[in-house]
């Protein structure tokens, strides 16, 4: 029986090398709304998925400059402009003495800002429809899970299923578990005690887990 509200298809692999080869095939077949869920990052996966390098380093560079400007601004304002004090006849704008704090502020802004923006980017810079979190994939245990979203322009359920099987994936299944709004694991905001428990129960019933489950 065909699911009525299909959101995408899942299939998994057991070794990073297989996942890498599969990703390249998915890319070459022209799919764009697909993703790989993996327990650890795989070297070369960006290229295999047809992605560019991350833009996080540019964010870091901008934040580092901001940190430098902040520290220089603060120290010069305080020591030269707002309340200049004479320490043993030394110049007010004693720039060598300002270097340690400038360095620390640069690292502080760049490191914290990059981390926060990378976490946000991981949630937002993604395909239009990631796999619903309610589905147990085993991707945090030992599986390398391919997800093709139904939003893909090429989408056709039967063709997608045949394609994923042809890659040699195991556990291929169409997912219709569009979580009800309000489920804590749907990746969206919303509340509702009833739908939350209903969502959890359904997960236990319909989805197979990783090796442990």
């Amino acid at each position: 029986m065909m699911p009525t509200s299909t959101t995408g298809i899942l299939g998994h692999f057991y070794e990073p090398a297989d996942a890498l080869a599969a990703a390249a095939k998915v890319r070459d077949a022209g799919w764009t709304h697909f993703d790989f869920l993996t327990p650890f990052p795989i070297h070369g996966m960006e290229a295999a998925m047809g992605q560019k390098k991350s833009w996080i380093p540019y964010v870091t560079a901008v934040l580092a400059v901001c940190g430098i400007l902040f520290a220089q601004g603060l120290q010069n304002y305080v020591m030269v402009w707002d309340w200049p004090m004479n320490f043993g006849g030394k110049p007010f704008a004693a720039w060598p003495a300002f270097i340690p704090i400038t360095f620390e502020a640069m690292v502080f802004w760049a490191a914290l800002g990059s981390a926060v923006i990378a976490i946000i980017a991981g949630k937002t810079d993604t395909i239009p429809q990631p796999p619903p979190m309610i589905v147990k994939t085993g991707a945090t245990i030992d599986r390398f899970v391919l997800w093709i979203s139904a939003t893909d322009p090429k989408w056709d359920a039967a063709r997608a299923e045949a394609f994923v099987r042809s890659l040699g994936a195991d556990g291929v299944r169409l997912v219709d578990a569009a979580p009800r709004p309000g489920s804590p694991f749907d990746g969206r905001s919303g509340r509702g005690e009833h739908s939350r428990t209903a969502g959890l129960r359904r997960q236990d019933q319909t989805d197979e887990g990783g090796t442990h489950a």
């Binding site: 993703d35 790989f36 869920l37 993996t38 327990p39 990052p41 795989i42 996966m45 960006e46 998925m49 992605q51 390098k53 991350s54 996080i56 990378a118 980017a121 991981g122 949630k123 810079d125 993604t126 395909i127 990631p130 796999p131 979190m133 991707a139 945090t140 899970v145």
Partner: peptide, 9 residues
């Protein structure tokens, strides 16, 4: 989730 689009960043 372990998405490789998140792993990249």
């Amino acid at each position: 989730t372990g998405s490789h689009r998140a792993w990249r960043h």
